[in-house]
Every structure is written in structure tokens, then in C-alpha cells.
Amino acid sequence: MRQFFIFIKCELGRTYEVAAEIVDSLAETRQVHSVSGAYDLLAQFAVEKEADIGRFVNTKVQTISGIKDTQTLICFNAFTSDKGLGEA
């Protein structure tokens, strides 16, 4: 699995609605957090190794009503108790 995070900026007053839609409609969602700063949400996703992350973001996330902007962070490695030897 490939892990990645997306910072999401929502239309005013729609953050909770957008978060619920992400959790309810995208099976690839691992967690969604409300955050402070330039973005409203930080969402974690996991897709199959051969998946096109750009296409996933473009067609599944950015098309959700209430989303104004996104910034995607692709993970290289997950450092865990197994010393980061597991797959990210």
C-alpha cells in the first residue's frame, strides 16, 4: 500500500460536511483530522502500489463539494516500531 496525506481547504462553514463526505465515501481514507493554519483538514489515505495518486486526488477528492484547494504529501517511508522496514 502507498500512504499519502492531503491538506484540504474548505469553503467557509463546510469543514465538518467535507470531512464526513471523505470518511463516508472514500474507502481509501484512513483518518481525517481538523487542523489549524492555512488548511482546514488533514486526511490520510492508502491506495494500492500501482494506483495513480494524482488521478485519485483529481477525480475522487477534489471533486467533493465544498473543497476549495488541496496540497498532497506523498510518504516515502513510515517509521514505526519495526524501524521503518515496513512498507509505507
Rank of each mutant, 00 (worst) to 15 (best):
L85W: 02
A27F: 08
L12H: 12
Y39R: 06
T59V: 11
V18T: 01
Q62N: 15
G86Y: 01
V57T: 05
K68T: 12
F4M: 02
G66T: 10
S81L: 13
V35W: 04
L26E: 11
R55Q: 03
M1W: 08
D24I: 06
V32T: 10
V47I: 10
C75T: 15
F76I: 01
I67R: 07
A38I: 01
K60G: 00
N77I: 04
V61Y: 11
R2F: 05
V35T: 04
Q44V: 03
L26P: 07
N58L: 14
Y39C: 04
V18H: 00
E50N: 15
I8Q: 07
A38N: 00
V32M: 00
F79R: 08
A46L: 03
E50G: 08
I64P: 09
D52V: 03
E17T: 02
E17A: 04
K68C: 12
V61C: 09
Y16E: 12
N58P: 08
G86W: 01
G37S: 14
T70M: 02
Y39G: 01
S65L: 07
A51W: 01
S25C: 12
E28V: 13
K60E: 05
V57N: 11
G66F: 09
D40M: 00
E17G: 04
K68N: 13
Q3W: 08
A88M: 07
R55N: 06
A20Q: 06
Q3H: 10
A46S: 14
K83C: 11
D69M: 09
F5P: 06
L41T: 00
I67D: 05
E11W: 06
I67F: 11
Y16L: 05
R2H: 07
D52Q: 01
V47Y: 04
I64M: 14
F76Q: 08
C75M: 10
E87A: 14
L12Q: 10
K83A: 11
K68A: 15
S65E: 15
I67T: 07
S25R: 13
S25M: 05
I74A: 09
K68P: 06
D52L: 02
S65K: 09
G86Q: 08
E48V: 05
L12S: 13
S81P: 08
L85P: 00
L26M: 08
Q71V: 14
F4V: 03
D82F: 04
G13W: 02
A27T: 13
A88V: 10
K83V: 08
L85H: 06
S81C: 07
M1N: 15
Q44G: 00
K83Y: 08
L85N: 02
Y16T: 15
E87W: 09
Q31W: 10
A51L: 01
T72I: 14
E11R: 13
E17Y: 04
F56I: 04
V18I: 05
F45G: 00
H33F: 15
N77M: 05
K68G: 12
F45R: 01
F7S: 01
